[in-house]
Design a protein around this nucleic acid. Structure first.
Lengths: 124, 124
DNA sequence: CCCATTACTTACAAATTTGTTCGTACCATA
DNA sequence: TATGGTACGAACAAATTTGTAAGTAATGGG
């Protein structure tokens, strides 16, 4: 993780913005490098830690763990531990996260539709 | 800004993910600390630099400039400079950005609806 | 006893984002 | 000539996120 300072301007601004803007709040919850990718993989049902790791190109176990923990705290992912050895843990979307799926898909469509146009603009 | 390294793992991962996931791509475009706040303020029409600055609590001129530049590069905001002294510049949403508005509003509703629930979970 | 498997941890380092503090150009007005 | 308003830019520092390279625990199989 890297714990955050309690009284930095940075932290204060983040809190203030999140409190005042539902949209920013919503986007923050899905705003880590690998979060959306993880959530997408879980759209079709439960997956084990190792399955996620193998399906997400380039992610390290540390990053996967961190992002899953945050998603869990945010109430978007449910973690289930089985009392087995070797360990078995799986992850699935919560109801709250399911409600986001249709919105994601619109966003995704928007991204696909405008990617080329926007990419051209960016490359200027 | 702070230019980015061309060949860091970090940068490489970001590129790869953006290329492979329209959703992540879409979210990246609105993913700075102040971006959504800025976009929201522009929903009802053009605003000048100073108007944005005064309406967004806590933002510095530097941050406002940076985020506006990125939004402009991303094709979400249009910048208009008037040849006057003192300088006058205004900003408005582009068509592409307008298309996002209905999606934002769903996301925002989702945020509002689940904020309490999720906040409780987070505070555990 | 040694090894393999799975889902993590920990300590550390590098990269990136944000914030602070100054400074600039321009011209009308005092 | 000094001042003021507007929209930035630059240099630097602090905070935060991301990546690297190691471990660890528990247990069945050899």
């Amino acid at each position: 993780m890297g714990k955050r300072k309690e009284n930095s301007t940075n932290m204060h601004n983040e809190k203030t913005i999140m409190e005042g803007c539902d949209l920013t709040y919503a986007v923050c919850m899905i705003g880590g490098r690998w979060k959306l990718l993880i959530l997408c993989k879980l759209e079709n049902g439960k997956l084990r830690f190792s399955e996620l790791r193998d399906r997400i190109n380039g992610i390290t176990e540390r990053m996967l763990t961190l992002q899953l923990r945050e998603l869990e705290k945010a109430g978007l992912v449910k973690r289930t531990v089985y009392a087995e050895v070797p360990p078995k843990v799986d992850y699935e979307l919560t109801e709250i996260a399911q409600e986001l799926v249709p919105i994601w898909s619109q966003l995704s469509d928007w991204g696909a539709k405008h990617r080329k146009t926007t990419t051209k603009l960016i490359s200027k």
